[in-house]
Design a binder for these strands. Structure first.
Lengths: 169, 169
DNA sequence: CGTTTGAGTTTACTTTCAGAGACTCAGCGA
DNA sequence: TCGCTGAGTCTCTGAAAGTAAACTCAAACG
């Protein structure tokens, strides 16, 4: 019997029933950043863009979608607006990343790393990530609480405190 | 002058021009796994599903989309098909994850972790990830080559070997 | 006072997605 | 040989998302 089934029996839930997937954290994150353009907007913020026109120019994305995605990201607290003023023009909003937004970096670096490995040009990646102080290359890794590296195949998923089964109709 | 601009000048590229974003590894990964349902299908594979009817039942996704996504994932080498045979019925295909698919685990764990932190139910996450051997909780982290933890704000992006600027029309 | 500019909104059109149902196809078992 | 089953495909309709281009709005500039 696997750890999953064992834990379910401890809590009195029937392991033959389907999981309730409505409170899955992966799905909930995708509700916020899973729409087209959203992650690419964040990429541009990390690479230094902050203004509506910059996003539009670099991404080539339609203005109405850009406005909708930026609004969503601000509502969700991933970006925040500040104002900037170029000398000789009026003050305008700009978009800066929040700490909640910075917490998406590991996920997006995971995507970057996979793309670098499997879909890069023959010469290599277009962008490299390095540690600002020491200049060493950085990557995302899975570690256990003791700080030891963990292979993906050695990860076990077990029911958490909000785990529920789906009642059969 | 930042490291980005400095490196561009070393290679003779004009740092005032926009980056060419067509070979971005993030965008290329999203071309494969960025459509709705795709990552959720992978989630179900990690949680133990392998059959068409299981995906359909647990995800509640339309069969035609499910078939299209599974076909894409197999074409891309993220899933592979094998056959299984229940006693008394004919052999049918099932979907298993490949090592290329397992390499997406860090990215998806990044999404999971963000959702656990910012969008979980009050009781906590629905699913916990732990190290199969020691049972300790696992998470994704950014590390530099020396194995030291790196904060997202201490990461610097610099042009890589396939970096290009976009010619101004 | 008219023009320019960045930051949007509106409108019109096209593509994709969602959801449901009918249909196919191959082999197993009665 | 007929019906059943899992794994799909096909077709349809309505909703949502994506795209392109025109339009608005408010200061600042000449």
């Amino acid at each position: 019997m696997d750890a999953w089934t064992e834990l379910l029996q401890d809590t009195g839930m029937d392991p033959r029933l389907d999981r309730d997937t409505s409170n899955c954290s992966i799905a909930r994150t995708l509700e916020v950043v899973g729409e087209k353009w959203t992650i690419l907007i964040l990429r541009e913020v990390w690479y230094g863009s902050s203004r509506f026109s910059e996003f539009e120019r670099v991404l080539g994305c339609p203005r109405n979608l850009l406005a909708a995605r930026l609004r969503m990201l601000v509502e969700e607290g991933i970006l925040a607006t500040e104002t900037y003023k170029e000398p000789g023009s009026r003050s305008r909003p700009k978009y800066v990343i929040t700490s909640k937004g910075m917490d998406l970096v590991p996920a997006v670096m995971g995507l970057l790393q996979w793309g670098d490995r499997y879909r890069a040009d023959p010469e290599g990646p277009a962008v490299l990530a390095r540690h600002r102080e020491c200049g060493a290359h950085v990557d995302v890794q899975i570690r256990c609480e003791q700080g030891h590296p963990v292979q993906a195949k050695d990860i076990e998923s077990v029911p958490g405190p909000a785990f529920r089964v789906r009642s059969p109709e």
